[in-house]
Amino acid sequence: MPDFEEGGAREVTLKINGDDFRILVEPRENLREVLHDRLGFTGTKEMCDRGACGSCTVIMDGRPVVSCMMLAVEAGGHDIETVEDIERKQHPLIETYADHNAMQCGYCTPGFVVTAKALLDRNPDPDEEAIKSALEGNICRCGTYPAHIWAIQAAANRLKTREA
């Protein structure tokens, strides 16, 4: 049973992809497990569970953060964006990732896509160095790294034409 005393389990409102989710969480639950195991945002993957791989990345208030190292009780009130929203809104990254083969097993890929989206939000025209800097916290065991550079630059171009 969760402990409901002061400082124990409590209700928080998570604002995920623009929708509010009011749920009861224990302090020890991290945001990744709440998103993935409880709310069904299965695009937020568990790989290392220690903040080292980026596969559980979500965008929180504009920052790419690793949800496995964030307590869910502390995530209330912040804007959380997951890969599901990026997909639903048909961000060009989804298409360019498929075009450029920027995946193998694909397990890490949503984490890369979310990180890349956060990058493009801040920097619409990233060069190779900027992309490497943004992605250096994402582990791809399949080693797909170079393809991410191509896919992200292609998405940046599509965004530019879309705006023009």
Binding site: T44, E95, A98
Partner: peptide, 11 residues
């Protein structure tokens, strides 16, 4: 285009 590409990229 990679057949499982969008599915994987989109989580």
């Amino acid at each position: 285009q990679r057949r499982d590409g969008k599915e994987k990229a989109g989580g």
